[in-house]
């Protein structure tokens, strides 16, 4: 995918099975938004093939749209409307696509209760707090009981209780075999709610694995920090397996080591490392994405 001469997505190859919760991560400008907008059918790719729920999103019929839910960050609409009115009007568009097994739209009261807006049902939308507004966006994304839900930064502006509600909701959707694609900058959130993490950098998919795979990578990246009692000099040593280093250190320098700290790299460290390496390799002309993927596996 390119804008003029600028290549923004290059060789993204991705397949997501039904019912999987996938988190798409990446620095600003990595191509996340473009990727998601292509998958949502809001943007036409300049090359390549895209199939979502069996259709090309850019040319898919309206029945396809009824199977997809979209929650964006940028909505500030219908401020003077009541919460219930907006959900019911939006839900009405899904009614022709109800099936015996999938009743559409979702009952308004049940949906409002699920997203924690039951008490605001008859309130004006422009009177909602930022977090409540976010819940409303999620409710509208869900009103057609989508098979695939796109969630863009779903917990931005939410308090911890609100975040937990949304996380629980995503877990419920996964139980209902709804496929969810979440874009987020919150690595802890991604790790918590996603079955699979994708990291985009520089238009490439530089990591694709389960949180377990990332944790495996994490276990290979630990940091040992200690201070020399005599000189006060601090030494930092990074090691995939710090056990041998620690054994050697303590046996060869008895009584010299103080303030010893062993710290496992966080998911954030891994993420930053992958992104940094991909950017460096890009400048060096090496095949960074592959290298990064290998590192994860």
């Amino acid at each position: 995918m390119s804008y003029g001469d600028r290549l923004v997505l290059d060789g993204i190859d991705l397949e997501v099975p039904p019912g999987q919760v996938v988190a798409l991560l990446g620095p600003n400008g990595a191509g996340k938004t473009t990727t998601v907008e292509i998958l949502e059918g809001f943007r036409q790719p300049s090359a390549g093939q895209v199939t979502v729920l069996g259709e090309n999103p850019a040319t898919a019929p309206e029945s396809w749209r009824s199977r997809v839910g979209v929650v964006l960050q940028s909505w500030r609409d219908h401020g003077t409307w009541k919460v219930r009115d907006l959900i019911e009007v939006m839900g009405g568009y899904y009614a022709p696509y109800a099936t015996p097994s999938v009743p559409r739209p979702w009952s308004t009261d049940e949906l409002l209760s699920r997203v924690g807006l039951a008490t605001q049902a008859d309130g004006r939308i422009d009177k909602l707090s930022g977090g409540q507004r976010r819940r409303l966006d999620v409710a509208i994304g869900l009103v057609g009981r989508p098979e695939l839900l796109f969630l863009d930064e779903p917990t931005t502006g939410l308090d911890p209780a609100g975040r937990r509600d949304i996380h629980d909701l995503v877990a419920d959707l996964a139980d209902l075999r709804t496929t969810v694609l979440v874009t987020t900058h919150d690595l802890a959130e991604a790790e918590k709610i996603a079955d699979r993490l994708l990291i985009l950098a520089g238009g490439h998919l530089v990591a694709d694995g389960t949180p377990d795979a990332l944790r495996h990578q994490l276990s290979r990246s630990s940091e040992v920090r200690w201070r020399d009692r005599a000189t006060g000099q601090v030494t930092v040593h990074a090691d995939a397996d710090p056990t041998a280093y620690l054994a050697h250190l303590l046996s060869t320098r008895p009584g010299e080591v103080e303030v010893l700290e062993v710290r496992a790299a966080s998911l954030e460290d891994i993420y930053l490392d992958i992104v940094r390496r991909s950017e460096t390799d890009e400048h060096d002309g090496a095949d960074l994405p592959t290298a990064a993927l290998e590192a994860l596996r």
Partner: peptide, 20 residues
């Protein structure tokens, strides 16, 4: 105004929403 506040995008995100 609807282009800026997302009303049109909201309509586009639902089946036949823009027509409606």
């Amino acid at each position: 105004a609807e282009r800026e506040d997302g009303t049109l995008l909201r309509a586009k995100a639902v089946p036949h929403g823009m027509t409606g």
